[in-house]
Design a protein around this nucleic acid. Structure first.
Lengths: 212, 212
DNA sequence: GTGCGATGTATCGGTCCGATACATCGTGGC
DNA sequence: GCCACGATGTATCGGACCGATACATCGCAC
């Protein structure tokens, strides 16, 4: 998962580790707290060994001015390679059970603007399936096995069930939007929408289902 | 986390691994999919080494009848020890940053009926604090940094923000309930509430805020 | 001039997961 | 009669990821 996220971010611009972590946190803030350096650096090492990214010591723009006295050490900038872009394309397109888990889905979704529509639809429907199953499990528990559990556990299940139902509705909306060829929901004032680089869908619709 | 959950479940009854996993899945179904054997067995080993649980090969009740021919192998039953109960009490009472994360909070909450009220309140408030911070982070992102992110990422943030707001409200309710000395919300038909063993709170109130 | 928070790179031990392997049991179909 | 199949059951291995920790630099406020 980290691999996919790193490759995706480096595709936008070369970065050093610290920056990468901040961008990662910004992009995935909704699904995970903050990614640890204990994961980040080893993964960068691995990606580099595989030839998907290259490491370059930062050369200050004004290199001639201050040759080597202040020395400006550290700051290793990582750049994605052609093979890395290929790898990203492969990872982003391939779907499996882990694509539908909480983290996997979140990461894939965060890069939906680089994903073709067929894949987007496949992922959204797979995720819906997964959540529906979780929901049924919770419903069963709250129905049949309720007397075996204490009041707090039951309340936890109820809250979880609520979240499942809510997410299924959210996914339904997204799927409907996707099928109609529209971009995802756009905020009321309409001034959003990131820079368009490669293959995000044509966003012709300005419809926004109001959220009261 | 697993350690706490296992100790908590074995306190209700001795079990073998497979059963433990099922119970774990039932109790924590709302917060995590299903715990892996790759975590369960090593943890059981660790708990046993620490003297918190004991392992006993299952002796069939009708042991004399079928002495050793069919042999009935496998089925190792784990039982919690006095030290284990002590350890559980210690783990359930101690709070820290990891107590307020998604998984940590879920596990602690699932054993709230074995937790004293002061600790319950501390955990609920800590969790609320954590979610409020996550919420503020998402709000900032959707406000200031919105133009840097694509439409899908923004939609993900919105959904995350929504979930945060919802959870904060849920926690507020629970905190209010806790302060007033009531048990957690009780389903409308009122036939719930697990067996009462040690220290769950006196549940005098039958009030249930209706969920339309 | 000095302390302190942000920036920045890096490792280590430990927890947990996913895949895999293997054995037993009951049940239903042929 | 028998056998395939799904549930029950124990177990290991490699890998992903986290939390704590260490250490160095930079800019700024006091």
């Amino acid at each position: 998962m980290l691999e996919l996220a790193i490759l995706g971010l480096l595709q936008e611009a070369p970065m050093h580790g610290y920056e990468l972590r901040k961008e990662l946190t910004a992009k995935l803030g909704a699904i995970r707290a903050a990614i640890s350096y204990g994961s980040l650096y080893p993964t960068l090492r691995r990606l580099q060994a595989a030839g998907w990214i290259t490491e370059a010591a930062e050369t200050p723009a004004t290199a001639e001015d201050v040759p080597a006295l202040t020395s400006r050490r550290g700051r290793v900038v990582y750049t994605i390679t052609a093979e890395g872009k290929e790898r990203f394309a492969q990872l982003i397109a391939q779907t499996g059970p882990e694509t539908y888990g909480d983290t996997g889905f979140g990461v894939h979704f965060a890069f939906f603007s680089r994903t073709d529509q067929a894949t987007r639809l496949r992922i959204l429907e797979g995720r819906r399936r997964t959540i529906e199953e979780r929901r049924e499990g919770l419903r069963d528990m709250l129905g049949r096995a309720a007397e075996r559990l204490d009041a707090y556990t039951l309340e936890l299940q109820r809250h979880g069930l609520d979240a499942c139902e809510r997410e299924v509705r959210w996914l339904e909306e997204l799927i409907a939007n996707e099928r109609s060829g529209r971009a995802p929901t756009v905020p009321p004032d309409g001034t959003a929408g990131g820079r368009r680089e490669d293959n995000s869908p044509p966003p012709p619709g300005e419809t926004r289902k109001e959220r009261p």
